[in-house]
Computed example of a mutant assay.
Amino acid sequence: MDFGFQNDTGTTLTDIHPVLQTSLTGPWPLPHEVLYVAMGCFWGVERIYWSQPGVINTAVGYLGGRWPHPTYEDVCTGQTGHAETTRIVYDPTRTSAGDLLKVFWENHDPTQGERQGNDRGSQYRSMIVYTTEEQRQLAEQSRQTFGKTLAQAGRGPITTEILSLAAAGEFWLAEPYHQAYLFHHPHGYCNHGFKGFVCETPRLTN
Rank of each mutant, 00 (worst) to 15 (best):
M1K: 13
M1H: 15
M1V: 14
D2I: 14
G4M: 10
T14W: 06
T14N: 05
P18I: 02
T22L: 04
T25L: 12
G26F: 01
P27K: 02
P29N: 08
V37S: 09
V37E: 04
A38S: 13
A38Y: 04
G54F: 06
N57G: 09
L63A: 07
G64W: 02
R66D: 12
V75S: 03
V75F: 01
Q79A: 13
T80Q: 03
A83H: 03
A83Q: 02
E84K: 06
T85P: 01
R87S: 02
P92H: 04
G98I: 08
V103G: 01
W105Q: 08
E106Y: 06
E114N: 15
R115I: 03
R115E: 03
N118R: 10
R120L: 13
R120A: 14
Y124E: 00
S126K: 05
M127F: 03
V129F: 03
V129P: 04
T131A: 08
R136D: 03
K148F: 09
T149R: 14
A153R: 13
G154I: 06
E161I: 08
I162P: 07
L163T: 05
L163M: 13
S164E: 09
S164V: 05
L165D: 07
L165C: 08
L173P: 01
A174W: 12
H178V: 11
H187G: 12
H192T: 10
H192S: 05
G193Q: 00
F197K: 07
N206E: 14
